[in-house]
Design a binder for these strands. Structure first.
Lengths: 359, 359
DNA sequence: TTGAAAGCGCTAACAG
DNA sequence: CTGTTAGCGCTTTCAA
């Protein structure tokens, strides 16, 4: 019910082996033979059968991406990079979105099935130890993105350094009492961002202020959400009214920072006037909210993770690689480093921020 | 290099046909034979080879989704619904993200390749007429989401009605001079939303005010972006300062409304005080910006489109279906229907909006 | 109910 | 350089 290489072979007056070679750009085919076959293929509008190819060649030309909560800007950007690059390389991307924890193992098992995919991209979740041996065993390449395991390639953001840079920005602006509004400390990024914050405080000789460290895991996604930001901000403002001084806050993610901004607005606290704020991620909303933040090279991470996977596919038998990305400070108004919006704004398509490359 | 049904057959002392039947729950197998085979399968931790199955059975158990600009909340939500349901049904979802127009044909061709996928979901773009005959011809089910073609199943939002409801909301609040800030009129949704706006104005006996209709396609994505919203809003305010009266605006999408809000803020125009605003979509940011808007049942559309595709897969030979969804009005502060934020806000996890079901 | 055998459409090794 | 042949791992007749 479809044209096969047998039809082409007959049409072109050659053997099926030759047809296959022509179609796959195998070098040892006479130029005129190739021309003849390709002409026939075009004439009959031949289309290879993907699964027959895959069965015979033992390569699927597809990879799976196992990715949490994928209605989230962070993942989306990374995914965009992955899909872009995959498409360029002729790979199909099978998307496995994790909505509850049990999905993870299901998708891992499915990906491990013989011959289903050539490789796996695993995002932002703790990689289950029980599967660590299965990938090498099945000889299936695995690349971790925004998470880490010693046995596999990982691409990560330098959370600690990013947090340090963010905090230093506030310190440079003259703040001494700086709060940290964090997500769940059960996640590695939160822990690392807390460390970076403390690093910067200590390095500046500022009194460690654990009384100004807040963390909330409320509202799902390990506290990386708006509600959690609201909650932490409320706690902070309460303490401030209770007599603690505090003039700035570093928030573990932009989405939490947006929640924090809402509370500030509700309670009449001016940002950056009364309280300077800096976030982390540079999600799209950050620009709209004029939020100073740390930008992560999201889609670039996606592209590079795909490249790494392909390198593995091609047999590179290197030791596990850890590639780390340093976030970049993006200065907007919420941190108080920029003058308030003034006069006639020449429109620069959404007020382009001042960039300061992070060392 | 993997366990095959031959291994299982030997282990269980039966033929490969029997093994296959057991694995596929074929009825005519003796209970104890089945038990024996399944035990062997478990013991040897057998995994079927996806592509061999697909080649032999002529079913791939996967579908492709061709989707534009997929770093966009609208598509993401729909996609989430699709992936959810696909996963429940045991289908793999192959994601084809369209970043430039030429991708569309490439992905359509790829999807049409014999045996690659069982069905195709096509999103939000004009379906190329030149492919309209190819799908029936290849007997490949196709479902359109947020777009329309008479020959195929379509799931759509009632843009015209939604726009009418939005405009009526403003009229009900007493506004008479209501602007419409639109995206590119080359897109169907924009045209329909404009019609709905005009419908409402006419029905209320308000003078048609084409001098208050703005549209901008600047900034990509056919004008469904923040920059375009800024641009339109700037034009509007200029006109107002030039003497035109206008107290409210219906914006074709939330993302444009956010841009409009930015300009209002920059130019010291109070929303909703000086100008009431209503958007369309109910993206996540809408809540943060306290934007009144029309909510579309995004993930439900995704799930239903998948269901429809599966129905087609199972051979239902029905006439093309058109399912339309009516957007729902979500009232927040930007339209001026709610009192300004007051006193001690009992926290309702992000100020839940008042809902008014749309007719 | 079951086993054997014939493909599904292609790739790749092997002669020539 | 090219044709032939043997699988890839499974599903599905067809007899038994």
């Amino acid at each position: 019910m479809g044209i096969t290489i047998y039809d082409l072979a007959r049409e072109a007056g050659v053997g099926i082996g030759t047809v296959s070679r022509c179609l796959n750009n195998h070098p040892s085919v006479a130029a005129h033979t190739r021309a003849k076959v390709l002409a026939a293929a075009k004439r009959m509008s031949y289309q290879p059968h993907a699964h027959a190819q895959r069965l015979a060649s033992r390569r699927t030309n597809s990879i799976s991406a196992i990715i949490p909560y994928f209605t989230n800007y962070f993942f989306l950007q990374v995914l965009q990079g992955v899909q872009d690059r995959a498409s360029e390389l002729g790979f199909d991307l099978i998307l496995y979105g994790v909505n509850n924890p049990s999905d993870v193992e299901y998708y891992l098992r499915r990906s491990l099935q013989r011959g289903r995919v050539d490789g796996v991209l695993f995002f932002s979740m703790k990689f289950p130890e029980s599967y660590a041996s299965k990938f090498p065993q099945m000889n299936l390449p695995l690349v971790l993105v925004d998470t880490f395991h010693p046995a596999f390639d990982s691409l990560r953001v330098k959370n600690r350094e990013g947090a340090r840079l963010a905090t230093e920005h506030l310190i440079r602006l003259g703040h001494r009492r700086i709060a940290m509004l964090n997500a769940s400390l059960n996640t590695l990024p939160s822990v690392e961002r807390l460390e970076g914050y403390r690093d910067a405080m200590a390095a500046a000789g500022l009194p460690s202020a654990t009384d100004l460290e807040f963390s909330s895991a409320i509202g799902g996604q390990d506290g990386f959400n708006r509600q959690s930001g609201r909650e932490s901000m409320r706690s902070l403002l309460e303490k401030v009214r209770g007599g603690h001084s505090c003039t700035a806050a570093f928030v573990a993610s932009d989405i939490q920072a947006l929640g924090a901004l809402e509370i500030a607005r509700e309670q009449g606290v001016a940002v950056p006037g009364d309280l300077a704020l800096i976030g982390f991620d540079d999600i799209e909303l950050a620009e709209h909210a004029d939020l100073t933040t740390m930008r992560q090279p999201l889609s670039e991470m996606g592209r590079l993770s795909m490249d790494r996977l392909v390198a593995r596919l091609q047999g590179a038998s290197l030791p596990p690689m850890l590639k780390e990305f340093t976030p970049e400070l993006v200065v907007r108004r919420s941190s108080g480093a920029l003058p308030p919006p003034g006069g006639k704004s020449t429109d620069r398509a959404g007020s382009r921020p001042t960039m300061i490359a992070a060392s």
